[in-house]
Nucleic acid binder design. Structure first.
Length: 138
DNA sequence: GCCAACGTTGGC
DNA sequence: GCCAACGTTGGC
């Protein structure tokens, strides 16, 4: 089981839309960056990911589940896709500023390489951000 | 709106 | 295969 972080502009794909897609999920499209694609190819069905709103909001707002193994994008088979489904919202969204203010999270890819759109998250980071977001440990 | 950081492209 | 130029992203 691995953990990830998926970035999106709420104008193009928002948490609201992700929630409406329900348990069936939606393909996570538009990744056209080799490092991000490499991370996506390393995903497995059942992995979990944070859902991050960039742009004006800049906060981790929810948790999604990777519900397929990676498969080729029918639009362009050189790039991978996975389907993701909303799991739960964070009761208290974790802002980028809060992540940066937390010394235990300075190593997070979100801080170190803000531009990467599909990022790995360590188990320690996952648990801490969940707790900061108001979710109980599982 | 600016610009630093990063990725990609293309000439050599 | 290198690297300068260029484009894009995203935080500020």
């Amino acid at each position: 089981m691995a953990y990830w972080l998926l970035k999106t502009e709420p104008d193009s794909w928002s948490w609201d839309q992700q929630k409406k897609a329900g348990a069936k999920g939606e393909p996570w499209t538009g990744v056209r960056n080799t490092a991000a694609a490499k991370n996506m190819r390393a995903m497995n069905k059942g992995d979990l990911a944070f859902f991050y709103h960039t742009g004006g909001e800049k906060a981790i707002v929810g948790v999604v589940k990777i519900i397929t193994d990676p498969y080729p994008d029918p639009e362009d088979e050189a790039w991978p896709l996975v389907d993701v489904a909303a799991v739960e919202a964070l009761p208290k969204p974790v802002a980028l500023a809060a992540v940066k203010a937390e010394p235990k999270l300075v190593q997070m890819t979100l801080v170190r390489n803000a531009r990467l759109s599909v990022q790995p998250v360590s188990e320690a980071e996952w648990k801490l951000v969940r707790r900061m977001g108001g979710l109980k440990d599982k």
